[in-house]
Design a protein around this nucleic acid. Sequence first.
DNA 1: CTTGGAAAGTCAACAAGGCTGACGTAAAAC
DNA 2: GTTTTACGTCAGCCTTGTTGACTTTCCAAG
Lengths: 169, 169
Amino acid sequence: MPDSTPAAIHSGESLLFLTDEQLRKGIEAMFFAYRGFTADPDRILEQYGYGRAHHRAMHFIHRVPGTTVNNLLSILGVTKQSLNRVLRTLIEDGLVKSSVGNRDKRERHLCLTEEGAALEQQLSDAQRARMRKAYRAAGPEAVAGFRQVLEAMMEPEMRAHFNRLKDGG
Amino acid sequence: MPDSTPAAIHSGESLLFLTDEQLRKGIEAMFFAYRGFTADPDRILEQYGYGRAHHRAMHFIHRVPGTTVNNLLSILGVTKQSLNRVLRTLIEDGLVKSSVGNRDKRERHLCLTEEGAALEQQLSDAQRARMRKAYRAAGPEAVAGFRQVLEAMMEPEMRAHFNRLKDGG
DNA sequence: CTTGGAAAGTCAACAAGGCTGACGTAAAAC
DNA sequence: GTTTTACGTCAGCCTTGTTGACTTTCCAAG
């Protein structure tokens, strides 16, 4: 049990924000907040018979139009079989278009159709509405801190993806 | 598509942190960070043949020792059938102890056994280690902001639970 | 030109962890 | 004494993750 003691007696600055109690509260905050984070899209998805996996796929196809399956795989961090199941239904339902690559014809480039973009927009609107409310309530400085902590929490590989998506990828 | 326009032209203060781009980046940050958040415990749980659901149950039993099944149900936001499946294995494996209530004998009070507390500690240590690293990297002001935004993001019911757990409960 | 390997897709099987519905028991509440 | 509450359980379903095996397509190196 390496770290179960206060962890506060350290340097000159007050490190009270690093106590186990504070860290536990942070953990719980992440847990409860993530539920809120997904709640609104989940309600919409249910009406269409889709799940979170479909939302995630559509989100990143929207963000990186023309992305390959492999790239999407790497962003989402799932197996190709898992992604393929989701992708297949989205393609069958006419929400996503898969086109053979020009240079490399093994690759498939993924784009949202008009219908897919509309659903993505609807899901995104709902999720952003909650985000906006939270951001507005907390203020710009809090938002900056929020982003800093989240980024520091990511696995390096995921952080790389995150930063690659910067400002409209 | 109600909110797909800048949303910035508003009051006097710069509301650039409320643009759709910023909100989308926040959404992606939540997604990528949550993966990191669960990665370390997941690796440990796998060795014991448990999953995230077991971790969550143990976490909150640790936080609210002697809690009832109904209370845990309400915190976790799942059905009693889902929780029961998890709880049963934890009780069978001797990690959780269920005891009949004194005042109300219909209720079961849940506690971690020594063995359960040890595993919870191990999981918690791993998760807190990542959290601590992120907190330290971001600094106290960022942490305060992080917590503010997360709290604002929660569903009211979950926020009530969150605040009820305040400072060791 | 042939061949090795990467990219993509597919089939099968399985597990975790959600869900619903139905049913049973014990105890509290009315 | 009836109803409600708390809990447990059985059965079955869904989504979404996993592994393993296999095929097809195609680029690129030999």
